[in-house]
Design a protein around this nucleic acid. Structure first.
Lengths: 216, 216
DNA sequence: CGTTGTACTATACACTGTACGTTAGCGACA
DNA sequence: TGTCGCTAACGTACAGTGTATAGTACAACG
């Protein structure tokens, strides 16, 4: 059995510090040694509470998922689903590292389960059969994951002037003979990428399909 | 102007070797030094052809996108769209590193543009206005990206016995009082996750929505 | 032939995650 | 009260990373 901790460290404190560093310096550039230094402690001290770096990643992810609000009550189920998906997007935008943490590691942890429970129970209450509810949950989650990951990527792009310049250059190097549609739609592609409107466009497509299926 | 290469190296060869290593040892565990060693060359030799590691990543991504077939001709547009999305999923499953390469770097390159051109021209021919076509393209792409990334992640999970055991443990530790729906749907969630059926389920939802909008 | 530019090498630096062995200090029991 | 065991935290060390910088050998050109 674990004794009471000495006093300097505890898992909660490590996770909070790691999260701060991750948001300050980006998901790359984050290192165990950086966290340890921030805590005024040797790198190996962290291994008392986390088996390795991935284990710490999981803890950070679950900590962030704890910030997800529960589904709103008293609304029609499509609005509840929309709300959950939007909340997850906003959380991912506020904490860009969350996107990578969700995509690169399996889901686990108490708070993560809580979020899944919220969405799944909405779907079950809406009348979806168990298998359809599971499929729908996965579809919605993966859509939010992909759409928001991409949105974050594009936002990074627009902030880096060097990358932006190279993107313009590669765009203009495309012959409008070989790629007429890409060249024609280049303004729309860069203008519409990302943003709440783009996100809702895809989300509404999914929701319309779901509504149609419950009606039949 | 570039002189004729000495003879040992060229960009194409480097990319092919890098891709082999990436598929053999996974996207992690891939290193410039590994590629250089495989080519029997010093690590810095690669910097003659690529400005840095990310630049090589971009080249690999574009090389893989070159394997995408063009949209099939002579079919109704929803079938063309479905075909392109499925092809991209299959390519990502065959080359799991592609998922990370697509998600972590902006799109660029000739082959990548070719693929975009294919899907965009299908949408334009189907009658979508420029802005809607751009939005739809992004929605479809991000759906495939998220869904397939997740599918790969889950497949990795099922192959690692240690991770699988930990997943079972964390599932069973969930109280069915706190998380009744998750516990109830646990079999469906692990059974339906991934696979072509799951992918098509979400894809068909999107397509139904798109068809409805062109009809109105 | 000399000059120049390029393909590649050699060395070095600042990092990374973590395996291993050691120390210091608390909790509990004699 | 003394002592023993357990463990939190430390220090050292290792194998590895990407890449900056400087140098070397060779091909092509004037």
């Amino acid at each position: 059995m674990p004794r009471t901790p000495r006093n300097t460290l505890n898992p909660e404190l490590v996770v909070r510090t790691a999260l701060e560093l991750m948001e300050a310096k980006g998901a790359d550039g984050f290192s165990l040694r950086g966290v340890a230094a921030e805590l005024g402690v040797g790198p190996m001290a962290l291994y008392t509470y986390f088996r390795n770096k991935d284990d710490l990643y999981d803890a950070i992810r679950d900590h962030l998922m704890g910030l997800m609000p529960p589904p709103p009550e008293g609304l029609p189920w499509p609005d509840q689903v929309r709300s959950v998906c939007r909340d997850l997007r906003v959380l991912m935008l506020q904490h860009p590292c969350l996107a990578q943490l969700l995509a690169s590691r399996p889901l686990s942890g108490h708070e993560t389960a809580r979020v899944a429970e919220g969405l799944l129970s909405v779907l079950r209450s809406a009348g979806f059969e168990p298998e359809t509810a599971a499929r729908t949950h996965t579809t919605l989650f993966t859509y939010v994951l992909g759409a928001t990951t991409w949105e974050i990527q594009m936002a990074h792009e627009k902030l880096d002037p060097d990358a932006l310049r190279r993107l313009r250059a590669s765009m203009e190097s495309l012959s409008s003979r070989d790629f007429p549609t890409v060249v024609e739609l280049a303004p729309e592609l860069s203008r519409t990428t990302g943003g709440e409107k783009q996100f809702d466009y895809g989300l509404d497509l999914l929701l319309e399909g779901l509504i149609a299926r419950t009606a039949s």
